[in-house]
Computed example of a mutant assay.
Amino acid sequence: MADLTAAIRAMARNGIRLRFGGQPDTGVGASRFGGVPDVPAEFVWPVFETATYDDDDVRPRPLAFLAQFNCACLAPLDTDGLLPKEGVLSFFYELGSQRWGFDPADRGCARVFWFPETDALSPASPPEDLPAEYCLPAMGMALAAEASYPGAEDFYAGREDEIGDWEPYWEARAMLGIEDPDNRSCLLGWPDLIQGSFFRECELTDRGLYLGGLCPDLSPEEAQAERDAVQNWQLLFQLDTVEADGFQLMFGDCGRVYFCIRKEDLAARRFDRAWLILQCG
């Protein structure tokens, strides 16, 4: 058990815990959930061509604005120095279809923007065809750094020969005092998994493979990329059910959405290459 707890400690990543509610900071570039994004003058509101659960018509639909984060305020909490130290990170998702991310055709259902110059931003006006229920109410947020640890599937990824009874792993987590809350939204760190490890899904779907059925035959290069996915991909933003002040936003049945990005793309600030996964019970 001592070796197992040491191995878990060694895989710790820094994360930033998010709690939503209360009055938002309305200053330009301030971190907040919902409301309207602060964007540069040339910003074009993202759309995604899709039907929805309520409308079979396939047409371009505006993405909903989820949240924005002031990078300068995040910097003291981002102890691993992964995020930009200036500007604003903004997250969007098409809520009418709530795509899952296992289909290459899902590309564009979610978008991440980094606006480096906060002084050049101003509040955007949502498109007229964005349904009112997808114009999310503005809320404040509390942020705190916390240690984050992998779930069992991510812990054993790449060493499947060690997988047996997972009970010792969860016992070791409990010994370390690692909590597993029912609801957690965060930036960075490890994802809280609902339906198993999904970094391989990010890797293969991003390569154009459809994963909504039987696992496709993989080339040697694809198989190696799948094995390396847990080491090569990084959680960027995990958004759980948001419930505050009489408002609720839920993904599927008590699910979560996860914005993920390759570490090399994060380092190069290629946020347009982020990929979204939805999981629910």
Rank of each mutant, 00 (worst) to 15 (best):
P62F: 05
F113C: 14
F91D: 06
G101K: 06
V28N: 01
P62K: 02
A51G: 13
P127W: 05
P46W: 09
F20P: 03
V58E: 15
L63A: 12
L130Q: 00
G29I: 04
G35W: 04
R111P: 00
K85N: 11
A67I: 03
A124D: 04
P62G: 14
D55W: 05
E128M: 05
R99H: 11
T52E: 12
D129H: 08
R107Q: 14
D25Q: 10
A132K: 06
T52A: 08
L121I: 10
C109Q: 06
V44M: 13
T50C: 15
C73F: 01
G34R: 01
L83Y: 00
G21Y: 08
V58I: 14
P123C: 11
F91E: 03
V88R: 01
A64L: 04
L136S: 06
T52K: 01
C73D: 10
C71L: 07
V47N: 05
P24K: 00
G108P: 07
P62H: 10
D54P: 00
G22E: 10
G87A: 11
S97R: 15
A41I: 06
T118N: 07
T52Q: 08
A72C: 06
A120I: 07
G108K: 09
T52V: 08
R107K: 15
F20N: 00
G29V: 05
C73M: 06
D55S: 10
Q98D: 15
L83M: 09
M139H: 09
P123Q: 09
P62V: 08
D78S: 07
V47K: 11
L83W: 00
D129F: 04
C135G: 01
F102S: 10
F43H: 10
D56F: 03
V47W: 08
Y53S: 12
G81H: 07
F115C: 09
E42G: 11
A124H: 02
P123H: 08
P76A: 06
A110S: 14
F33M: 02
V58F: 05
S125R: 13
P123W: 06
R99D: 12
A67N: 03
F48L: 09
G35Q: 03
P104K: 08
D55Q: 11
L82F: 08
V47I: 09
L95I: 07
V112F: 00
G21N: 09
R99Q: 14
D80Y: 02
D56K: 07
L95K: 00
L136E: 01
A72F: 04
R61G: 05
G101N: 11
P123A: 11
R59A: 15
A41S: 14
F69C: 02
R107V: 08
V88N: 02
L63V: 13
L121P: 07
R107I: 12
T26D: 11
Y134D: 13
L121V: 10
E49F: 05
